[in-house]
Nucleic acid binder design. Structure first.
Lengths: 363, 363
DNA sequence: CTGAAAGCGCTTACAG
DNA sequence: CTGAAAGCGCTTACAG
């Protein structure tokens, strides 16, 4: 059985005995129509089972009522929640959401943007792979496509952004460990693609960088916060305590954590810079059968479901993830609606959620 | 600065000095063109920065190269992974994915389907709220829209489905507990909306139901497996051990688990019927400070990241979640491409992942 | 292989 | 308030 023939506005108009223009006005809810004509058209539409074709409408109006999202990886609690926030706002406003994944790959990101542009989305929410302002995003924005960056942002792109205060919250978390008396605190973080010289150099200069300037990748910002806290306490940073995983992989994080935890001068605390790093860290801790917090204190950036009932409950940094998505969508819809004010860079606060995984180091 | 004026095929044709039909043929990659004309057109397109408008193309071809997804809740590891599977296949085949959430609400599901239809998706992947074949899905399918059901399925809908062997894997898991010597095994499950009479009656008759017949909601199927295993071992089912949460909420699951675990004749094992129930269960166990597996053995349906490194590591049922999504997308694309064979109901195997959270009951 | 014409299903000025 | 006509940006027969 073939698809039932689609009913068009023309057929409804014929059935109702009016012109297509008039039928369009009542069905599309624009222009003026008298009540009785409207009723006739609606009756005809119902009778025939008319469904509007938004492709045709979009073609003429130039508005698709659709927003495009380029997530890094939807199979990740962070993006899943962001997308929830985006979806909630979009639904409330009658917008559709087209989803793509970049997998942190610039070519895929380009392809994704290209796909979304061809589908004529009204605007884009993107977690850019490259935070130094890739040319394709620049030309996208120059071309007038409303764009909101999430999670990370290139500040020299003329586009809004919604991010989290990575540096400040990491600083707070590490401060919490320092206050508890820890002096050998390891950090395990992605730290991929450094373009400002060596890691050692970065550490030496991190405290002097402006938050929104030299480095805009979350894991580097979190390392900045780690350095800031040490500086506040006059504790020198031991580069040997920086577990630079190099990729966004829990297995790689597990390896890096294992190396750190087996070193002769073992750290007494470990700070995992995001959810994926946390998973790797937890695996390493389980493999080595370390007791928390007796042998090791831990704090995780990114509050995952299980962290609150693991025993001991894990101290975390709680990001307003749903809000990232909903705010990005709201900003984008405002731009689509014609807001042309200067780009806004929204930095949301994250909250330290103190729980039992931190104790003073064993003397 | 307004959006840069969009370049159309007409302008490219003019620039190249050919007709729009010819320009369309090379740009749209259909029909025949000579190499030198193709080169001229491509040069003109590149020079002007031509981007195809897929809305116009879809309007005339009747194909949008887009699939619609109605997930229950993207902010849920299960759907996030399913969507990953869908997205991977879609990207490989050049399809876009429009995402909506139903939140298990029939009205939202209808709205979502409506939105997707207006955007003229070529097909739909849906986790139906109501498994008894809602009228709106029935008419959708009768209208010829290719549709694949996931996670649960109405078998009297003429649409493919991809689900998991819930009953069989639950039976295997509970058998594992029975073999370990447990005789008081509680189950905590959603079990919403029963239409076959009372819970007691269901339990009495569950073993006689065909797997794919009377009940098609995952949590009920998992309860069936629980009953099956008891029957296999000649162990009567105590309805007092069935924690019927009534909604898909971890807080509610926590409450139900707490009640079960505080009862005078406490179960020695607890089977959580999905990820959300597992989270509630774990919270209850933490609150009551029970030792696993000394005081309680547990098995979770749904393998979440953390279950493997929690100590003790938790025995789980591992569902091929990504595969659910990719298979659903492949099936759908085949239908879109014209496969008109009878609907297929694919039931994927889930695998018991034995880990340390099960031990014999304390005597 | 190429072009002139028609048309996909709507909306938008423009008359009336 | 309503209708005839044109047009959104493409693709599709149909001639040549």
């Amino acid at each position: 059985m073939p698809a039932s023939p689609r009913i068009t506005i023309t057929q409804v108009a014929a059935e109702a005995g009016v012109s297509t223009a008039t039928a369009g006005r009542v069905l599309g809810n624009y222009g003026y129509t008298s009540d009785d004509v409207a009723a006739k058209v609606q009756a005809a539409a119902r009778k025939l089972g008319y469904k509007p074709n938004s492709l045709a409408r979009s073609l003429v109006t130039g508005k698709s009522h659709t927003i495009g999202v380029v997530a890094a990886d939807i199979d990740n609690a962070f993006y899943a929640r962001v997308l929830r926030g985006i979806g909630d706002v979009a639904r409330a406003r009658g917008f559709g959401v087209i989803l793509t994944n970049s997998d942190e790959d610039l070519e895929r990101e380009k392809d994704a943007v290209q796909l979304l542009l061809e589908k004529r989305v009204d605007g884009l929410i993107v977690a850019p792979c490259d935070v130094r302002g890739s040319a394709h995003l620049r030309s996208l924005i120059a071309g007038g496509c409303p764009t909101v960056q999430i999670d990370r942002a290139s500040y020299d792109l003329a586009a809004d952004s919604v991010t989290v205060d990575n540096r400040g919250s990491a600083r707070e978390a590490v401060t919490h460990l320092l206050k508890a008396g820890h002096r050998r605190i390891a950090i395990i973080a992605e730290l991929e693609e450094l373009h400002n010289g060596s890691l050692e150099e970065f550490v030496r200069q991190a405290a002097h960088f402006s938050t929104n300037g030299e480095t805009l990748y979350p894991s580097w910002q979190r390392l900045q916060g780690y350095v800031d806290a040490h500086r506040d306490f006059g504790v020198p940073v031991d580069p040997g305590l920086i577990g630079r995983v190099g990729s966004y992989s829990s297995d790689a994080a597990c390896q890096a954590a294992t190396v750190l935890l087996q070193s002769p001068d073992r750290p007494t605390a470990l700070f995992a810079a995001d959810g994926t790093m946390s998973i790797g860290m937890m695996q390493a801790i389980a493999d080595l059968d370390l007791q928390i917090p007796e042998q090791l204190s831990i704090i995780c950036f990114d509050d995952l479901d299980w962290m609150k009932f693991t025993r001991p409950a894990i101290t975390t940094i709680h990001q307003p993830v749903h809000r990232i998505g909903s705010m990005a969508a709201e900003l984008l819809l405002a731009r689509i609606a014609g807001d042309t004010s200067v780009p806004k860079h929204n930095v949301l606060e994250a909250r330290l959620q103190v729980r039992d995984s931190v104790a003073p180091p064993r003397s």
